Amino acid sequence: MNVLFEVNGCKVDVDVTPRTTLCDCLRNELGLTGTHAGCEHGVCGACTVIVDGTAVRSCLMLAVQAEGSSVTTVEGLAKDEELSPLQHAFRKHHALQCGFCTPGMLTTLHALLTEDPWVDEDRIRDVLSGNLCRCTGYLPIIEAALDARTYYQQAAGER
């Protein structure tokens, strides 16, 4: 099936089988390997991308369901090879170790902070409960999210 959608601001036209997941399409058809296939059951969060502003598990969404949508992957968070403020905060707070879960954490938090730039720590913890990490301890990730809120608050004020 032919599917037309936008990925990281660029229109794409891909031919996939009807059962191809969005995760597999992004990785195998479009070469966007930042989206990680972890559990493939929607439990770990490593495959999280943003579809029309909402964080979704790309292993549970079929590529054909993305027809006409706007998809943002972890590659789309940086602009002109400059890390996003959230990515800078992750770096500053050492919020990653092996990096496998990091793309899903970043896209999940970007969607949350875009939707609610004044989010509190409890809500951040609640939302991150759906993203599994075996290496860090979540504290640096939460600190990075709290640090990045200022940028999202300023961006919201400019809208």
Rank of each mutant, 00 (worst) to 15 (best):
A95D: 00
E81P: 13
I141D: 04
Q65A: 11
I142Y: 07
D13W: 10
G53K: 08
P117T: 13
P140T: 00
Q87T: 07
G31N: 12
Q153R: 14
A46P: 02
T107K: 03
A148H: 04
A156F: 13
C101Q: 05
I50Q: 04
A155P: 08
T108H: 03
V119P: 02
A66F: 04
G130Q: 08
T48A: 02
V64E: 09
L128Q: 03
V119S: 07
Y151R: 01
E121K: 12
V119M: 08
C25I: 10
T136S: 07
R159L: 12
C101P: 03
G68V: 04
E29Q: 14
V7E: 06
G53L: 08
A156R: 13
T48I: 06
G76V: 01
P140V: 07
T72S: 12
L112N: 08
V56M: 10
C10Y: 14
T102I: 05
P103I: 06
D122G: 14
T136E: 01
E6R: 12
E6Q: 15
E115S: 11
D120A: 10
G68F: 07
G130I: 03
S129K: 12
F100D: 07
C59V: 06
L30I: 05
S84T: 14
P117W: 11
A66V: 05
P117H: 15
N2L: 12
C133L: 06
G38M: 01
E82D: 12
G130T: 06
D147G: 07
S70E: 12
E121N: 12
P140E: 05
A55R: 01
M61P: 11
T107C: 11
L77V: 00
V51G: 01
L109E: 08
D126G: 13
G68C: 10
V43Q: 00
G31E: 14
H88A: 12
V119N: 02
V12M: 07
S58Y: 11
E40W: 01
C23R: 01
C10W: 15
P103A: 11
D24Y: 11
V12P: 04
S129P: 14
G130K: 01
V3N: 01
S69D: 08
A148G: 07
V64D: 06
D13C: 08
R159V: 14
V71K: 10
C47V: 01
I142F: 03
D80Y: 10
E115T: 15
A55G: 09
D116H: 09
I50S: 06
D13Q: 11
E81V: 13
A155C: 13
S129V: 05
M105N: 02
C44Y: 02
G137I: 09
C59F: 02
G104D: 05
N28K: 15
L83R: 14
G53P: 08
I141R: 04
R159A: 14
L77D: 03
V16W: 09
G99L: 11
H93M: 04
E29N: 13
G45P: 03
I141F: 05
D126S: 14
S69Q: 05
G9E: 15
L96I: 09
C59Y: 05
F5V: 08
L109S: 07
L113I: 01
C25L: 15
V74A: 08
G31V: 13
H93K: 11
T114V: 08
R57E: 09
T17R: 15
T136A: 05
R19A: 15
P18C: 03
H88Y: 11
T107G: 00
E82M: 12
H93P: 02
G130H: 05
